[in-house]
């Protein structure tokens, strides 16, 4: 087993373990901290996949922005910090949901292993970030603009909804 495989298994274990701790932890605050750990693990997976720019974006937006947003919302709702008294952290259907999730995972596993993927292991040539930036200004200009409009609309909408 090579060193990259060991690194992959370690990173995946950390990511999946953090995600499991996130969905099972009692308080939302602790869950949010585990979520940050899972996001950092995903960023490490991006680095293994030679997508350095996406790893940086992942750290900035998910582990930075979205995590701070969620922690902020938790702090703004006073009684969220404590677990709800007399209530489980899961709703009544959690066993059914767990069974469905496990079944879905088994199905996806079988699919991923059995499919014959047309793998093309070419080296990534050239400056990835440079190509990406040029792509956004030429070939992918429309998705870029649509995304920025979506972001603007979401920003205005969030302010309008959250305001008194």
């Amino acid at each position: 087993m090579s060193i990259t495989q060991v690194a992959f298994i370690l990173i995946s274990a950390i990511t999946l373990g953090s995600a499991l701790a996130m969905v099972t932890s009692r308080t939302v605050f602790v869950a949010a901290l585990w979520m940050v750990a899972a996001f950092v693990g995903v960023a490490a997976l991006y680095i293994l996949l030679e997508a350095g720019f996406l790893a940086a974006i992942q750290l900035l937006i998910y582990a930075g922005g979205i995590a701070v947003l969620i922690l902020f919302a938790i702090m703004l709702t006073p009684r969220v910090m404590q677990p709800m008294e007399g209530l489980s952290r899961f709703n009544d259907q959690w066993m059914f949901v767990a069974a469905v999730s496990a079944f879905l995972f088994a199905g996806l596993w079988a699919l991923a292993i059995r499919t014959d993927w047309p793998v093309n292991l070419q080296r990534v040539t050239g400056d990835n970030i440079f190509l990406l930036g040029r792509g956004f200004m030429t070939q992918y200009l429309l998705p870029f603009e649509v995304t920025s409009i979506l972001l603007l609309v979401a920003l205005v909408g969030a302010i309008v909804i959250a305001r008194d």
């Binding site: 995600a19 969905v23 952290r89 949901v97 999730s101 879905l104 995972f105």
Partner: peptide, 13 residues
């Protein structure tokens, strides 16, 4: 990861 997230999204109170 997707299935863990699915479980969290459908089962948390």
């Amino acid at each position: 990861l997707f299935c863990i997230g699915l479980f969290g999204a459908l089962s948390r109170r």
